[in-house]
C-alpha cells in the first residue's frame, strides 16, 4: 500500500490559510456586529450565518458561477490578469473563507458582546483611541473567543467536501484535499488507504473538540473570576 500524503498537506495548508484570512476578515465583521446599532446588523449577521444552513453544493454552485469566466468576479480576476479561480487552490481558499465564516464570526461576536461597553469606556477615558481600544482591550479580553473561533474555523475547513467538489474538483496537488482523497479511495475500493485517512480524521476531530471543551471550561472559570471581582 502506498499512502499519498499530498492531500493531507494540502488540507493543512488550506485550513491554515483560511483561518488566518478569517481572523483578518471575520474579526472586524464580528466587532462591527457587536458595536453597531445599524439596522443592517441583522441582515449582515444572517448573511454570515447562511453557510450554516445552505447545502454546500448550493454555495459551491453559485461560487462557481460568480468566479467562473462568465461570472462578474471571474471577469474581474481575468481582467486583472489573475485568471479565473475555479479549479485552483486560490479558488478553494475563497470558497473556504466564505463557507467557514460563521464558525469564526459567531464565537468572536459573542466574546466581544460579553465584554460589555464598560471596559471600552474606561479605555476611552484613559486616552485610548477607538483602534487602540480594539487592540489593547477588546482583543485581549475576547482572546478565548478568538481562539475557539479559530479552532472551529480550522476544523470546519479540514472537513469541507461539497464546496470543494463544486469549485475545486479533484486536481492532485492543487485541489485534491483530504476529504476528496478519502472519497476517491473508497470509489476505487482502496479501503486501507481510506481507513488511514478517515481514522486520522476521527482522531483529529476528537482532539479538536476536546481542546474546545477544555478551553470552554477555562473560559467559564475566568468568567466566574470576573463576576466575583
Amino acid at each position: 500500500m502506498t499512502l499519498d500524503l499530498a492531500p493531507l498537506w494540502l488540507t493543512l495548508k488550506l485550513a491554515s490559510l483560511t483561518t488566518a484570512l478569517l481572523l483578518v476578515v471575520g474579526t472586524p465583521i464580528a466587532w462591527w456586529l457587536s458595536q453597531t446599532r445599524s439596522r443592517m446588523k441583522q441582515v449582515v449577521a444572517t448573511l454570515v450565518a447562511l453557510p450554516l444552513v445552505l447545502p454546500p453544493t448550493v454555495l459551491g454552485f453559485y461560487l462557481l458561477l460568480l468566479l467562473g469566466p462568465a461570472g462578474p468576479i471571474g471577469k474581474l480576476t481575468d481582467a486583472l490578469g489573475l485568471g479565473t479561480l475555479p479549479f485552483t487552490f486560490a479558488g478553494l481558499v475563497v470558497g473556504s473563507v466564505i463557507y467557514s465564516m460563521p464558525f469564526l464570526v459567531q464565537p468572536v461576536h459573542n466574546a466581544f458582546e460579553a465584554i460589555g461597553s464598560r471596559p471600552l469606556e474606561v479605555a476611552a477615558t484613559l486616552r485610548a483611541s477607538p483602534l487602540n481600544r480594539f487592540f489593547s482591550v477588546a482583543v485581549p479580553l475576547a482572546l478565548p473567543g478568538l481562539l475557539s473561533g479559530a479552532i472551529l474555523a480550522f476544523a470546519h475547513t479540514v472537513g469541507e467536501f461539497g464546496v470543494i467538489l463544486m469549485i475545486g474538483g479533484n486536481i492532485p496537488g492543487e485541489t485534491k484535499v483530504l476529504s476528496i482523497a478519502i472519497y476517491d479511495h473508497v470509489e476505487s475500493l482502496e479501503w486501507t488507504q481510506a481507513h488511514w485517512l478517515a481514522g486520522g480524521m476521527v482522531l483529529f476531530s476528537f482532539l479538536v473538540v476536546l481542546s474546545m471543551n477544555l478551553l470552554g471550561q477555562r473560559m467559564r472559570q475566568i468568567g466566574q473570576d470576573r463576576v466575583s471581582t
Binding site: 464598560r118 471596559p119 469606556e121 474606561v122 479605555a123 476611552a124 477615558t125 484613559l126 486616552r127 485610548a128 483611541s129 477607538p130 487602540n132 481600544r133 482591550v137 485581549p140 479580553l141 482572546l143 475566568i222 473570576d225 470576573r226 471581582t229
Partner: peptide, 19 residues
C-alpha cells in the same frame, strides 16, 4: 471625543482591566 478630553473618570465599579 472622550479620548481627546483631558479628564480622569472614576466609575461606580472600579472596572479594572482583568487582563
Amino acid at each position: 471625543e472622550t479620548h481627546r478630553r483631558p479628564i480622569g473618570y472614576v466609575f461606580q465599579e472600579a472596572s479594572l482591566f482583568s487582563h
